[in-house]
Design a protein around this nucleic acid. Sequence first.
DNA 1: GTCCAGGGAGCAG
DNA 2: CTGCTCCATGGA
Length: 244
Amino acid sequence: MKSVPCSHFNLQHTIESGQLFRFEKKDGGYFINAADRFFFAKQENNKLFFDGNVDERLIAHFFRLDEDHCETIGKICHDKHVANAVESYRGIRLLRQDPFECIISFICSSASNIPRIHRNVNDIARLFGEKKTAIIQGQKYGYFAFPKSGMIDDERRLAKVRLGYRAKFLLQSNSTVTQKFLKELNTKRYCDAKTQLMTLPGVGEKVADCILLFSCGHLNAFPVDTWISKVMSELYFSKECKKN
DNA sequence: GTCCAGGGAGCAG
DNA sequence: CTGCTCCATGGA
């Protein structure tokens, strides 16, 4: 199997951190669906082995192996609580995901839970995505690419996913998002890109920040979900004002 | 049966 | 701008 060097990287922490929803833990690694790709990835110390519809360049890009992780960590570790978090999940990286898949995934995430989001996003790919094949370790695998914007346009078909009230947000966002819209998320500055995203139904501040951070290269985005909110009020705003 | 979940929209105050 | 309620499922 081909491999790329990967220092200061932890595949498990990265994949299971909740950025990504279409993956399966298997054979000592992960089978990963991302946009129109399907591949297997497995880490052994400072080597990342991979096989499937990807090459070295794409793997390095997807996992941000082209970045100086130590420099990033150094910048954010001045805070004691952040330093503790970094220590607990050493080697976790932000992925570079596909913006449209990210938009749809995080619209699905509102007031839901991880297992259900996984199921929903996989079902959407299965019902609306193009069927493809990949060769991994000499074996042929069928998989579904994630649909492109505009492809999730059948209300009755989408009803099978049982998204509840999110379904209509998803349909409307699907028809609103164009290639131009997606491109502008990268080129605009953070605030403007966020404003643009929040015009989509089902996209508020938190979901917009997830999309910007995980798929648009806006590393200053800071998604505040219920857990981050809870932790921050405990660590920084409790009456005891914990210094340690 | 009841409660609430990786939020957001819509509305009242 | 803040603080409700409702949203539609499904799992605990």
